[in-house]
Simulated assay, not measured.
Amino acid sequence: MPRFETDPEIRALGEALALLRRERGLSQAEAGRRAGMTSQGWGLYESGRRPGLFRPDVQRRLVAALDASPEDLALARSRQQAAPERPTPMLGLNASGRTFLPAPGGVRRLQLSNDDLAPWAASGVVLEFDPQQWPRRDQGCVIETVDGTVLVRLYEGADSQTLTVRGGEGGLGVVARIARSDIRTVSAVTARLER
């Protein structure tokens, strides 16, 4: 069976689709779920390895999952073409309106001083978090707000306007929605270290 070769134009359109998804703060799994497919299926479109991305019906289905339009996809494609080549892109998530931009730094540590996330993590537990990684559903996340407040919560999901998290005063049963405009950075918790 011959190996599938990706057309540069399809790959570029897939990269524009990935850009739209990241701007909305969605993982491939979340976007795929919204479009009625797996994260792997979504990833194949983004990498240009699944045919059909130039078909209008496929484009409408994919961008609708991102609360966008085919015109938004075309604009994202033109932004990519106009953008100068970036040296080494930084990874991470800093909020800038509805878009999350790269956050500086590597893995960081934070010690919990309360039991807001018990039994997931109790007071005294040290969390390692990575500003270069977006959290998955039910994964811990560290959120820095624009006013400098640091929140540690369990990530539930996101849409174009808000982040949905669990935890805080009252325990893990408390579900909160945080406006993206109030968020500076979102980082995935990668380890819980008990002392």
Rank of each mutant, 00 (worst) to 15 (best):
M1E: 07
E5L: 11
T6F: 04
D7H: 10
D7G: 05
E9N: 13
I10N: 15
A12E: 05
G14F: 03
L19D: 07
E23D: 13
G25Y: 02
G32Q: 06
G32F: 13
R33T: 05
T38H: 11
G41V: 05
G43Y: 10
R50K: 13
L53E: 08
P56N: 11
D57F: 07
Q59W: 10
Q59D: 13
Q59E: 14
R60N: 09
L62T: 05
L62A: 10
L66D: 13
E71C: 14
D72W: 00
A74M: 07
A76Q: 02
S78H: 12
R79W: 14
A82Y: 03
A82F: 05
P89R: 05
G92S: 03
N94Y: 12
A95N: 11
A95R: 12
L101C: 13
L101A: 11
P102T: 01
G106Y: 06
R108E: 08
Q111A: 12
S113M: 10
D115N: 13
A118S: 15
A122I: 12
S123E: 08
G124I: 04
E128Y: 15
W134H: 02
I143D: 00
T145F: 04
G148S: 13
G148E: 09
T149Y: 05
V150P: 06
R153T: 01
G157E: 07
D159C: 07
D159V: 07
S160T: 12
T162E: 10
G171H: 09
V175R: 04
R177L: 14
A179Y: 09
R180I: 06
D182Y: 13
I183S: 09
R184A: 07
R184C: 04
T185C: 03
S187E: 01
V189L: 00
E194L: 15
